[in-house]
Design a protein around this nucleic acid. Structure first.
Lengths: 243, 243
DNA sequence: TTCCGTCTTGACGATCCGTCAGAAATCGCC
DNA sequence: GGCGATTTCTGACGGATCGTCAAGACGGAA
Protein backbone atom coordinates (compact mmCIF):
# COMPACT_ATOMS: atom_id res chain seq x y z
CA UNK A 1 0.00 0.00 0.00
CA UNK A 2 1.30 3.37 -1.05
CA UNK A 3 -0.09 5.06 2.03
CA UNK A 4 1.63 2.68 4.39
CA UNK A 5 4.88 3.16 2.57
CA UNK A 6 4.80 6.92 2.99
CA UNK A 7 4.04 6.55 6.67
CA UNK A 8 7.00 4.26 7.17
CA UNK A 9 9.27 6.60 5.29
CA UNK A 10 8.31 9.35 7.71
CA UNK A 11 9.05 7.02 10.61
CA UNK A 12 12.49 6.28 9.26
CA UNK A 13 13.26 9.92 8.73
CA UNK A 14 11.98 10.86 12.13
CA UNK A 15 14.16 8.20 13.76
CA UNK A 16 17.15 9.35 11.73
CA UNK A 17 16.65 12.90 12.86
CA UNK A 18 16.44 11.82 16.51
CA UNK A 19 19.61 9.78 16.29
CA UNK A 20 21.36 12.62 14.51
CA UNK A 21 20.44 14.91 17.37
CA UNK A 22 21.52 12.47 20.05
CA UNK A 23 24.71 11.03 18.61
CA UNK A 24 25.78 13.26 15.76
CA UNK A 25 26.47 12.33 12.19
CA UNK A 26 29.01 9.64 12.97
CA UNK A 27 26.57 8.01 15.35
CA UNK A 28 23.93 7.70 12.67
CA UNK A 29 23.98 4.08 11.48
CA UNK A 30 21.54 2.06 9.47
CA UNK A 31 21.30 -0.56 12.19
CA UNK A 32 20.31 2.01 14.75
CA UNK A 33 17.60 3.45 12.56
CA UNK A 34 16.23 -0.01 11.92
CA UNK A 35 16.37 -0.89 15.59
CA UNK A 36 14.62 2.29 16.68
CA UNK A 37 11.81 1.98 14.17
CA UNK A 38 11.50 -1.74 14.92
CA UNK A 39 11.76 -2.56 11.26
CA UNK A 40 14.55 -4.63 9.84
CA UNK A 41 17.49 -3.28 7.99
CA UNK A 42 16.28 -4.93 4.79
CA UNK A 43 13.05 -2.99 4.90
CA UNK A 44 14.95 0.19 5.56
CA UNK A 45 17.05 -0.47 2.49
CA UNK A 46 13.92 -0.73 0.37
CA UNK A 47 13.30 2.92 1.10
CA UNK A 48 16.83 4.25 1.02
CA UNK A 49 19.59 2.72 -1.00
CA UNK A 50 22.23 3.92 1.43
CA UNK A 51 22.97 6.15 4.34
CA UNK A 52 23.57 9.16 2.19
CA UNK A 53 20.08 8.90 0.72
CA UNK A 54 18.61 9.22 4.17
CA UNK A 55 20.60 12.32 4.88
CA UNK A 56 19.58 13.84 1.57
CA UNK A 57 15.97 12.93 2.26
CA UNK A 58 16.26 14.76 5.56
CA UNK A 59 17.73 17.64 3.64
CA UNK A 60 14.76 17.70 1.32
CA UNK A 61 12.39 17.92 4.25
CA UNK A 62 14.46 20.76 5.65
CA UNK A 63 14.51 22.55 2.30
CA UNK A 64 10.74 22.26 2.10
CA UNK A 65 10.37 23.98 5.45
CA UNK A 66 12.71 26.68 4.23
CA UNK A 67 10.81 27.08 1.01
CA UNK A 68 7.58 27.41 2.93
CA UNK A 69 9.07 30.09 5.16
CA UNK A 70 10.44 31.98 2.18
CA UNK A 71 7.12 31.84 0.42
CA UNK A 72 5.39 33.24 3.45
CA UNK A 73 7.99 35.95 3.85
CA UNK A 74 7.77 37.08 0.26
CA UNK A 75 4.07 37.77 0.72
CA UNK A 76 4.85 40.44 3.28
CA UNK A 77 3.14 43.62 2.23
CA UNK A 78 5.68 46.36 1.90
CA UNK A 79 8.39 47.82 -0.29
CA UNK A 80 10.71 45.58 -2.22
CA UNK A 81 13.61 46.05 0.16
CA UNK A 82 11.28 45.34 3.06
CA UNK A 83 10.24 42.10 1.43
CA UNK A 84 13.87 41.16 0.94
CA UNK A 85 14.44 41.94 4.58
CA UNK A 86 11.51 39.69 5.43
CA UNK A 87 13.15 36.79 3.66
CA UNK A 88 16.29 37.44 5.61
CA UNK A 89 14.30 37.29 8.81
CA UNK A 90 12.69 34.05 7.69
CA UNK A 91 16.10 32.55 7.05
CA UNK A 92 17.20 33.71 10.46
CA UNK A 93 14.12 32.23 12.07
CA UNK A 94 14.88 28.95 10.42
CA UNK A 95 18.50 28.99 11.55
CA UNK A 96 17.46 29.77 15.11
CA UNK A 97 14.59 27.32 15.20
CA UNK A 98 16.38 24.34 13.71
CA UNK A 99 20.07 24.75 14.48
CA UNK A 100 20.70 21.07 13.96
CA UNK A 101 19.40 21.36 10.43
CA UNK A 102 22.20 23.70 9.51
CA UNK A 103 24.64 20.92 10.18
CA UNK A 104 22.62 18.55 8.04
CA UNK A 105 22.45 21.09 5.23
CA UNK A 106 26.17 21.56 5.55
CA UNK A 107 26.73 17.85 5.07
CA UNK A 108 24.43 17.73 2.08
CA UNK A 109 26.23 20.58 0.43
CA UNK A 110 29.33 18.48 0.28
CA UNK A 111 29.89 17.05 -3.14
CA UNK A 112 31.25 13.67 -2.26
CA UNK A 113 27.87 12.84 -0.82
CA UNK A 114 25.88 13.48 -3.96
CA UNK A 115 27.68 10.80 -5.93
CA UNK A 116 26.08 8.01 -3.97
CA UNK A 117 22.53 9.31 -4.10
CA UNK A 118 19.91 8.50 -6.71
CA UNK A 119 19.46 11.19 -9.35
CA UNK A 120 15.77 11.78 -8.77
CA UNK A 121 16.35 12.49 -5.10
CA UNK A 122 19.14 14.89 -5.94
CA UNK A 123 16.85 16.52 -8.47
CA UNK A 124 14.18 16.90 -5.81
CA UNK A 125 16.63 18.57 -3.49
CA UNK A 126 17.88 20.85 -6.21
CA UNK A 127 14.32 21.76 -7.09
CA UNK A 128 13.66 22.91 -3.53
CA UNK A 129 16.79 24.98 -3.46
CA UNK A 130 16.03 26.34 -6.87
CA UNK A 131 12.59 27.37 -5.64
CA UNK A 132 14.10 29.20 -2.69
CA UNK A 133 16.59 31.05 -4.81
CA UNK A 134 13.87 31.81 -7.36
CA UNK A 135 11.83 33.44 -4.63
CA UNK A 136 14.82 35.53 -3.70
CA UNK A 137 15.60 36.42 -7.31
CA UNK A 138 11.96 37.30 -7.84
CA UNK A 139 12.04 39.93 -5.17
CA UNK A 140 15.23 41.38 -6.64
CA UNK A 141 13.49 41.50 -10.01
CA UNK A 142 10.55 43.27 -8.41
CA UNK A 143 12.94 45.78 -6.94
CA UNK A 144 14.46 46.47 -10.34
CA UNK A 145 11.05 46.81 -11.97
CA UNK A 146 9.82 49.09 -9.23
CA UNK A 147 12.88 51.27 -9.75
CA UNK A 148 14.04 50.79 -6.16
CA UNK A 149 17.38 49.50 -7.30
CA UNK A 150 19.42 49.69 -10.45
CA UNK A 151 21.71 46.75 -11.07
CA UNK A 152 25.13 47.28 -12.60
CA UNK A 153 25.68 46.46 -16.25
CA UNK A 154 25.37 42.76 -17.02
CA UNK A 155 23.90 42.00 -13.60
CA UNK A 156 21.01 39.54 -13.35
CA UNK A 157 18.68 39.52 -10.37
CA UNK A 158 20.05 36.11 -9.48
CA UNK A 159 23.51 37.57 -9.07
CA UNK A 160 22.44 39.78 -6.23
CA UNK A 161 20.42 36.96 -4.74
CA UNK A 162 23.54 34.82 -4.79
CA UNK A 163 25.45 37.43 -2.84
CA UNK A 164 22.87 37.62 -0.10
CA UNK A 165 22.58 33.88 0.08
CA UNK A 166 26.34 33.35 0.15
CA UNK A 167 26.82 35.83 2.95
CA UNK A 168 24.03 34.32 5.00
CA UNK A 169 25.13 30.78 4.46
CA UNK A 170 28.74 31.66 5.14
CA UNK A 171 27.79 33.40 8.37
CA UNK A 172 25.83 30.44 9.63
CA UNK A 173 28.47 27.86 8.87
CA UNK A 174 31.32 29.95 10.23
CA UNK A 175 29.32 30.65 13.36
CA UNK A 176 28.45 27.02 13.78
CA UNK A 177 32.01 25.84 13.38
CA UNK A 178 33.50 27.84 16.22
CA UNK A 179 33.17 26.09 19.50
CA UNK A 180 34.10 28.72 22.02
CA UNK A 181 33.59 31.92 20.12
CA UNK A 182 30.13 30.78 19.24
CA UNK A 183 28.94 31.15 22.78
CA UNK A 184 30.07 34.75 22.83
CA UNK A 185 29.18 35.68 19.29
CA UNK A 186 26.09 33.78 18.32
CA UNK A 187 23.68 36.39 19.49
CA UNK A 188 25.87 38.88 17.69
CA UNK A 189 26.43 37.00 14.52
CA UNK A 190 22.79 37.18 13.56
CA UNK A 191 22.57 40.90 14.16
CA UNK A 192 25.83 41.26 12.31
CA UNK A 193 24.53 39.38 9.33
CA UNK A 194 21.52 41.66 9.21
CA UNK A 195 23.74 44.68 9.25
CA UNK A 196 25.97 43.28 6.51
CA UNK A 197 23.00 42.52 4.29
CA UNK A 198 21.90 46.10 4.71
CA UNK A 199 25.37 47.30 3.80
CA UNK A 200 25.43 45.10 0.72
CA UNK A 201 22.08 46.44 -0.45
CA UNK A 202 23.18 49.97 0.34
CA UNK A 203 26.25 49.28 -1.75
CA UNK A 204 24.00 48.56 -4.70
CA UNK A 205 21.87 51.57 -3.88
CA UNK A 206 18.64 49.77 -3.10
CA UNK A 207 16.15 52.32 -1.72
CA UNK A 208 15.28 53.07 0.95
CA UNK A 209 18.82 52.88 2.26
CA UNK A 210 19.58 51.58 5.72
CA UNK A 211 19.82 55.09 7.10
CA UNK A 212 16.65 56.25 5.38
CA UNK A 213 14.20 53.92 7.05
CA UNK A 214 13.06 52.69 10.43
CA UNK A 215 13.97 49.07 10.00
CA UNK A 216 13.30 48.17 13.62
CA UNK A 217 9.67 48.99 13.11
CA UNK A 218 9.55 46.93 9.91
CA UNK A 219 11.16 44.06 11.73
CA UNK A 220 8.34 44.02 14.26
CA UNK A 221 5.72 43.84 11.54
CA UNK A 222 7.64 41.11 9.76
CA UNK A 223 7.86 39.06 12.92
CA UNK A 224 4.11 39.31 13.34
CA UNK A 225 3.58 38.32 9.73
CA UNK A 226 5.82 35.28 10.03
CA UNK A 227 4.45 34.25 13.41
CA UNK A 228 0.96 34.30 11.98
CA UNK A 229 2.09 31.77 9.43
CA UNK A 230 3.65 29.54 12.03
CA UNK A 231 0.77 29.49 14.48
CA UNK A 232 -2.18 29.83 12.14
CA UNK A 233 -2.48 27.06 9.60
CA UNK A 234 -0.53 24.48 11.44
CA UNK A 235 -3.22 22.99 13.68
CA UNK A 236 -5.64 20.44 12.32
CA UNK A 237 -5.58 18.43 15.55
CA UNK A 238 -6.59 20.65 18.43
CA UNK A 239 -10.08 19.77 19.66
CA UNK A 240 -10.84 22.54 22.13
CA UNK A 241 -11.23 25.90 20.44
CA UNK A 242 -12.92 29.14 21.35
CA UNK A 243 -15.10 30.76 18.72
CA UNK B 1 64.86 10.50 16.04
CA UNK B 2 62.86 13.69 15.95
CA UNK B 3 64.05 14.61 12.49
CA UNK B 4 63.04 11.28 11.04
CA UNK B 5 59.67 11.52 12.64
CA UNK B 6 58.89 14.86 11.04
CA UNK B 7 59.97 13.59 7.67
CA UNK B 8 57.65 10.61 7.95
CA UNK B 9 54.79 12.80 9.02
CA UNK B 10 55.22 14.81 5.83
CA UNK B 11 55.25 11.60 3.83
CA UNK B 12 51.99 10.50 5.38
CA UNK B 13 50.35 13.83 4.72
CA UNK B 14 51.61 13.94 1.17
CA UNK B 15 50.22 10.48 0.52
CA UNK B 16 46.93 11.43 2.12
CA UNK B 17 46.63 14.46 -0.11
CA UNK B 18 47.32 12.39 -3.21
CA UNK B 19 44.72 9.80 -2.32
CA UNK B 20 42.24 12.52 -1.52
CA UNK B 21 42.77 13.98 -4.96
CA UNK B 22 42.49 10.63 -6.69
CA UNK B 23 39.64 8.95 -4.85
CA UNK B 24 37.86 11.63 -2.84
CA UNK B 25 37.18 11.74 0.85
CA UNK B 26 35.43 8.40 1.03
CA UNK B 27 38.33 6.75 -0.75
CA UNK B 28 40.79 7.98 1.84
CA UNK B 29 41.54 5.03 4.11
CA UNK B 30 44.24 4.38 6.63
CA UNK B 31 45.26 1.17 4.88
CA UNK B 32 45.76 2.97 1.61
CA UNK B 33 47.91 5.64 3.20
CA UNK B 34 50.02 3.00 4.90
CA UNK B 35 50.33 1.03 1.69
CA UNK B 36 51.37 4.02 -0.38
CA UNK B 37 54.01 5.19 2.08
CA UNK B 38 55.23 1.62 2.54
CA UNK B 39 54.92 1.94 6.26
CA UNK B 40 52.58 -0.22 8.28
CA UNK B 41 49.29 0.88 9.69
CA UNK B 42 50.62 0.65 13.20
CA UNK B 43 53.34 3.19 12.46
CA UNK B 44 50.78 5.44 10.86
CA UNK B 45 48.70 5.28 14.00
CA UNK B 46 51.65 6.45 16.05
CA UNK B 47 51.43 9.76 14.22
CA UNK B 48 47.71 10.16 13.89
CA UNK B 49 45.26 8.68 16.34
CA UNK B 50 42.56 8.40 13.68
CA UNK B 51 41.52 9.38 10.23
CA UNK B 52 40.08 12.68 11.37
CA UNK B 53 43.44 13.74 12.75
CA UNK B 54 45.00 13.33 9.34
CA UNK B 55 42.36 15.44 7.71
CA UNK B 56 42.80 18.14 10.32
CA UNK B 57 46.56 17.97 9.88
CA UNK B 58 46.02 18.51 6.17
CA UNK B 59 43.80 21.41 7.07
CA UNK B 60 46.55 22.94 9.16
CA UNK B 61 48.94 22.75 6.22
CA UNK B 62 46.31 24.38 4.06
CA UNK B 63 45.69 27.10 6.59
CA UNK B 64 49.40 27.81 6.74
CA UNK B 65 49.50 28.36 3.01
CA UNK B 66 46.53 30.66 3.34
CA UNK B 67 48.13 32.54 6.16
CA UNK B 68 51.27 32.98 4.09
CA UNK B 69 49.29 34.31 1.15
CA UNK B 70 47.38 36.71 3.37
CA UNK B 71 50.56 37.96 4.94
CA UNK B 72 52.04 38.62 1.55
CA UNK B 73 48.88 40.35 0.38
CA UNK B 74 48.67 42.62 3.38
CA UNK B 75 52.12 43.97 2.53
CA UNK B 76 50.86 45.37 -0.75
CA UNK B 77 51.72 49.01 -0.88
CA UNK B 78 48.59 51.03 -1.37
CA UNK B 79 45.52 52.45 0.30
CA UNK B 80 43.71 50.50 2.97
CA UNK B 81 40.89 49.46 0.68
CA UNK B 82 43.43 48.40 -1.90
CA UNK B 83 45.15 46.22 0.66
CA UNK B 84 41.83 44.68 1.59
CA UNK B 85 41.24 44.04 -2.08
CA UNK B 86 44.65 42.41 -2.24
CA UNK B 87 43.67 39.96 0.47
CA UNK B 88 40.54 39.16 -1.46
CA UNK B 89 42.65 38.45 -4.51
CA UNK B 90 44.94 36.25 -2.44
CA UNK B 91 41.95 34.29 -1.19
CA UNK B 92 40.75 33.95 -4.75
CA UNK B 93 44.16 32.80 -5.91
CA UNK B 94 44.14 30.18 -3.20
CA UNK B 95 40.67 28.97 -4.16
CA UNK B 96 41.64 28.75 -7.81
CA UNK B 97 45.01 27.20 -7.19
CA UNK B 98 43.96 24.55 -4.71
CA UNK B 99 40.31 23.79 -5.42
CA UNK B 100 40.57 20.45 -3.68
CA UNK B 101 41.59 22.20 -0.50
CA UNK B 102 38.29 23.98 -0.32
CA UNK B 103 36.60 20.61 0.05
CA UNK B 104 39.03 19.64 2.80
CA UNK B 105 38.46 22.92 4.61
CA UNK B 106 34.75 22.38 4.29
CA UNK B 107 35.06 19.01 5.97
CA UNK B 108 37.18 20.40 8.75
CA UNK B 109 34.69 23.12 9.45
CA UNK B 110 32.17 20.50 10.38
CA UNK B 111 31.80 20.14 14.07
CA UNK B 112 31.29 16.42 14.38
CA UNK B 113 34.85 15.99 13.16
CA UNK B 114 36.49 18.06 15.88
CA UNK B 115 35.29 15.77 18.63
CA UNK B 116 37.61 12.98 17.62
CA UNK B 117 40.72 15.09 17.24
CA UNK B 118 43.32 15.83 19.89
CA UNK B 119 42.98 19.24 21.50
CA UNK B 120 46.46 20.50 20.64
CA UNK B 121 45.92 19.83 16.98
CA UNK B 122 42.60 21.62 17.06
CA UNK B 123 44.29 24.49 18.84
CA UNK B 124 46.94 24.65 16.13
CA UNK B 125 44.28 24.82 13.45
CA UNK B 126 42.40 27.50 15.31
CA UNK B 127 45.59 29.49 15.72
CA UNK B 128 46.14 29.52 11.96
CA UNK B 129 42.62 30.64 11.29
CA UNK B 130 42.89 33.20 14.02
CA UNK B 131 46.03 34.55 12.40
CA UNK B 132 44.28 34.90 9.06
CA UNK B 133 41.32 36.69 10.53
CA UNK B 134 43.67 38.88 12.57
CA UNK B 135 45.38 39.95 9.37
CA UNK B 136 42.04 40.83 7.91
CA UNK B 137 40.92 42.67 11.03
CA UNK B 138 44.22 44.52 11.10
CA UNK B 139 43.65 46.02 7.69
CA UNK B 140 40.15 47.07 8.72
CA UNK B 141 41.66 48.71 11.78
CA UNK B 142 44.16 50.49 9.57
CA UNK B 143 41.32 51.73 7.45
CA UNK B 144 39.53 53.13 10.46
CA UNK B 145 42.67 54.79 11.76
CA UNK B 146 43.46 56.26 8.37
CA UNK B 147 39.98 57.68 8.25
CA UNK B 148 39.08 55.80 5.06
CA UNK B 149 36.10 54.21 6.71
CA UNK B 150 33.92 54.95 9.68
CA UNK B 151 32.39 51.93 11.33
CA UNK B 152 28.87 52.11 12.74
CA UNK B 153 28.37 52.45 16.48
CA UNK B 154 29.53 49.42 18.40
CA UNK B 155 31.28 47.93 15.38
CA UNK B 156 34.63 46.29 15.88
CA UNK B 157 37.07 45.81 12.99
CA UNK B 158 36.58 42.09 13.33
CA UNK B 159 32.89 42.48 12.60
CA UNK B 160 33.53 43.80 9.14
CA UNK B 161 36.21 41.20 8.61
CA UNK B 162 33.69 38.54 9.49
CA UNK B 163 31.30 39.82 6.85
CA UNK B 164 33.89 39.69 4.12
CA UNK B 165 35.06 36.30 5.17
CA UNK B 166 31.54 34.90 5.43
CA UNK B 167 30.60 36.12 1.97
CA UNK B 168 33.77 34.73 0.43
CA UNK B 169 33.52 31.41 2.16
CA UNK B 170 29.82 31.13 1.38
CA UNK B 171 30.47 31.88 -2.28
CA UNK B 172 33.13 29.24 -2.56
CA UNK B 173 31.16 26.50 -0.90
CA UNK B 174 27.96 27.28 -2.75
CA UNK B 175 29.85 27.36 -6.02
CA UNK B 176 31.60 24.14 -5.25
CA UNK B 177 28.41 22.32 -4.33
CA UNK B 178 26.60 22.82 -7.62
CA UNK B 179 27.50 20.30 -10.23
CA UNK B 180 25.98 21.63 -13.40
CA UNK B 181 25.60 25.28 -12.64
CA UNK B 182 29.20 25.39 -11.60
CA UNK B 183 30.43 24.84 -15.10
CA UNK B 184 28.47 27.82 -16.27
CA UNK B 185 29.00 30.06 -13.31
CA UNK B 186 32.44 29.38 -11.93
CA UNK B 187 34.19 31.97 -14.00
CA UNK B 188 31.39 34.29 -12.99
CA UNK B 189 31.16 33.44 -9.35
CA UNK B 190 34.62 34.79 -8.61
CA UNK B 191 34.00 38.04 -10.44
CA UNK B 192 30.65 38.21 -8.69
CA UNK B 193 32.24 37.79 -5.31
CA UNK B 194 34.63 40.62 -6.08
CA UNK B 195 31.75 42.85 -7.03
CA UNK B 196 29.81 41.94 -3.89
CA UNK B 197 32.79 42.68 -1.67
CA UNK B 198 33.04 46.06 -3.29
CA UNK B 199 29.34 46.64 -2.71
CA UNK B 200 29.67 45.64 0.93
CA UNK B 201 32.55 48.04 1.46
CA UNK B 202 30.69 50.73 -0.43
CA UNK B 203 27.78 50.10 1.90
CA UNK B 204 30.02 50.95 4.83
CA UNK B 205 31.42 53.93 2.96
CA UNK B 206 35.00 52.76 2.69
CA UNK B 207 36.87 55.21 0.45
CA UNK B 208 37.65 55.21 -2.34
CA UNK B 209 34.32 53.77 -3.40
CA UNK B 210 34.03 51.26 -6.18
CA UNK B 211 33.02 53.95 -8.63
CA UNK B 212 35.76 56.34 -7.54
CA UNK B 213 38.75 54.22 -8.44
CA UNK B 214 40.27 52.23 -11.26
CA UNK B 215 40.23 48.85 -9.59
CA UNK B 216 41.24 46.99 -12.71
CA UNK B 217 44.56 48.77 -12.65
CA UNK B 218 45.03 47.98 -8.97
CA UNK B 219 44.23 44.36 -9.65
CA UNK B 220 47.06 44.15 -12.13
CA UNK B 221 49.53 45.52 -9.62
CA UNK B 222 48.26 43.16 -6.96
CA UNK B 223 48.64 40.18 -9.25
CA UNK B 224 52.24 41.14 -9.86
CA UNK B 225 52.83 41.56 -6.15
CA UNK B 226 51.38 38.16 -5.34
CA UNK B 227 53.07 36.38 -8.23
CA UNK B 228 56.39 37.65 -7.02
CA UNK B 229 55.71 35.92 -3.74
CA UNK B 230 54.59 32.69 -5.33
CA UNK B 231 57.46 32.24 -7.74
CA UNK B 232 60.22 33.58 -5.55
CA UNK B 233 60.59 31.70 -2.28
CA UNK B 234 58.76 28.52 -3.17
CA UNK B 235 61.77 26.32 -3.81
CA UNK B 236 63.43 25.01 -0.71
CA UNK B 237 65.75 22.29 -1.95
CA UNK B 238 64.90 18.93 -0.51
CA UNK B 239 68.56 17.97 -0.17
CA UNK B 240 69.98 18.07 3.32
CA UNK B 241 72.39 20.78 4.30
CA UNK B 242 74.73 21.20 7.25
CA UNK B 243 73.70 23.83 9.74
C1' DT C 1 77.39 -13.38 21.47
C1' DT C 2 73.75 -12.18 24.47
C1' DC C 3 70.67 -9.20 26.65
C1' DC C 4 67.41 -5.48 26.75
C1' DG C 5 64.83 -1.55 25.41
C1' DT C 6 62.66 0.59 21.34
C1' DC C 7 60.39 0.63 17.11
C1' DT C 8 57.58 -1.83 13.58
C1' DT C 9 54.44 -5.02 11.93
C1' DG C 10 50.30 -7.24 10.22
C1' DA C 11 46.87 -10.30 12.09
C1' DC C 12 42.80 -9.65 14.78
C1' DG C 13 38.34 -8.17 16.99
C1' DA C 14 34.85 -4.87 16.43
C1' DT C 15 31.82 -2.06 13.77
C1' DC C 16 29.18 -0.90 9.97
C1' DC C 17 27.48 -1.19 5.24
C1' DG C 18 24.69 -3.30 1.82
C1' DT C 19 22.90 -8.03 0.07
C1' DC C 20 20.10 -11.98 -0.43
C1' DA C 21 18.11 -16.51 0.40
C1' DG C 22 14.62 -17.95 2.98
C1' DA C 23 10.66 -17.00 6.29
C1' DA C 24 6.35 -14.76 6.99
C1' DA C 25 2.45 -12.48 5.58
C1' DT C 26 -0.95 -11.40 2.27
C1' DC C 27 -3.69 -12.33 -1.71
C1' DG C 28 -6.49 -14.86 -5.11
C1' DC C 29 -8.96 -18.56 -6.28
C1' DC C 30 -11.63 -22.71 -5.44
C1' DG D 1 -11.68 -22.66 5.13
C1' DG D 2 -7.90 -24.55 2.30
C1' DC D 3 -3.91 -23.86 -0.46
C1' DG D 4 -0.65 -22.33 -3.71
C1' DA D 5 1.22 -17.87 -5.70
C1' DT D 6 2.97 -13.48 -4.87
C1' DT D 7 4.58 -9.90 -2.22
C1' DT D 8 6.96 -8.23 1.75
C1' DC D 9 10.05 -8.73 5.57
C1' DT D 10 14.00 -10.46 7.98
C1' DG D 11 18.48 -11.03 10.06
C1' DA D 12 22.59 -13.60 9.10
C1' DC D 13 26.41 -12.93 6.12
C1' DG D 14 30.47 -11.18 3.19
C1' DG D 15 33.26 -7.35 2.58
C1' DA D 16 35.50 -3.17 3.99
C1' DT D 17 37.48 -0.38 7.34
C1' DC D 18 38.96 1.16 11.87
C1' DG D 19 41.95 0.96 15.69
C1' DT D 20 44.65 -2.43 18.87
C1' DC D 21 48.24 -5.26 20.48
C1' DA D 22 51.13 -9.32 21.10
C1' DA D 23 54.97 -10.80 18.80
C1' DG D 24 58.92 -10.01 16.13
C1' DA D 25 62.85 -7.10 14.16
C1' DC D 26 66.44 -4.09 15.15
C1' DG D 27 70.33 -1.95 17.34
C1' DG D 28 73.41 -0.70 20.89
C1' DA D 29 75.75 -1.94 25.25
C1' DA D 30 77.96 -5.41 28.05
Amino acid sequence: MQRERARRERQFLSAAREILLERGYLGLTMDRIAERTEYSKGTLYQHFANKEEIVVALGIAIAEVQQHLFQRATQFEGGTRERLFAIGRAYRAWALGYPQDIAVTQIIKHRSLRNKVGPQRVAELDACEQACSDILSGVVRDGVEAGDVQLPEGFEPGHLAFGLWAMSWGSYTLTLMDFDLTKLEVADSFALLDRHCHALLDGYGWRPLHAEHDWDAVQGRIAAHLDAAVTDPDEPTSSDNAS
